[in-house]
Nucleic acid binder design. Structure first.
Ligand code: FES
Ligand code: FES
Lengths: 142, 142
DNA sequence: ATATACTTGACTATTTTAGTCAGGTTTATA
DNA sequence: TATAAACCTGACTAAAATAGTCAAGTATAT
């Protein structure tokens, strides 16, 4: 059960962006250098973030990205949703009445995994980008 | 971020085992048939569970496995630990002082992922096998 | 003009997962 | 004591997912 680097990078890059956002657009090149993430990979990620209206792009020289919403309004849920990082604990299709291997009833552990999924998603619903940069500023990191 | 089937199967198989445990040893063949898990795969899993003293094997005809501890005392944590299903959210080594890409300080998101890891592990610490079969018996499933 | 920086889609190496397979050993029971 | 049920072990492998790379653009501030 692990977090993929796509999700991890998306949040990291946005946290970086959020810190410089108030001044100028931030170029992916800068984020790439500061955070050690491949530029090409960042582009893939930001393309998705833009489509979900989490960031806005500004083209041309001195261009870059800015947040499209306030940091407080961007929850981890929104970010993960944008980059298709999803939490999946059950094996069956959740909507279906059928169980794990096409059985007629849900398996012994179905409810447990469902609870787990909610438990994790709650965490993502609660945390916003703002929480991240607030905490960080206190500790003075780069 | 998803649960692997090794972890899912381990818990499912143990839940099945726990329900019949009071009478006779339960053979992997039975679990395999009831839960639709490959016998060979189950053997791999139970070998690990045995090494961590979660189950005990009884060889020969009419043999099988029984729980080595009370269902109440077997937490999901113990099961996941046995089968090497681990929660991994940070990219860096947790013990090390260094950050994500060998940087000198921890990255912007390190604390966040660490919180997440704890959040998930708390869930596993709280749930025992007993919780699972109790809940199930109420609902009469197979 | 031109360099900077966004944009897109296809492609690929690596790693992880989810098993399979073969060849054992042990022991209850007929 | 023969035999079949069931545990035991390690090596192997196909498929899926991940984590990128690469190529070929377009837009715009200076
Ligand atoms: S996880 Fe849903 S039925 Fe098994
Ligand atoms: S996750 Fe630990 S430093 Fe980035």
């Amino acid at each position: 059960m692990k977090l993929t680097s796509k999700g991890r990078y998306a949040v990291l890059a946005l946290a970086d962006l959020a810190r410089f956002d108030n001044i100028n657009p931030v170029s992916l090149r800068d984020i790439s250098l500061r955070q050690g993430i491949s530029l090409d990979y960042l582009e893939q990620i930001f393309s998705k973030l833009r489509k979900k209206e989490i960031v806005q792009s500004i083209r041309g020289t001195q261009g870059g990205y800015i947040l499209k919403k306030r940091a407080k309004e961007i929850k981890l849920t929104n970010i993960f949703d944008a980059v298709d990082e999803k939490v999946k604990t059950v094996q069956c299709k959740k909507e279906s009445k059928k169980g794990c291997n096409g059985k007629l009833t849900k398996c012994l552990t179905h409810n447990l995994w469902d609870e787990l999924e909610n438990h994790i998603n709650n965490f993502f619903e609660e945390k916003s980008l703002e929480d991240l940069i607030k905490k960080d500023t206190n500790e003075r990191r780069i």
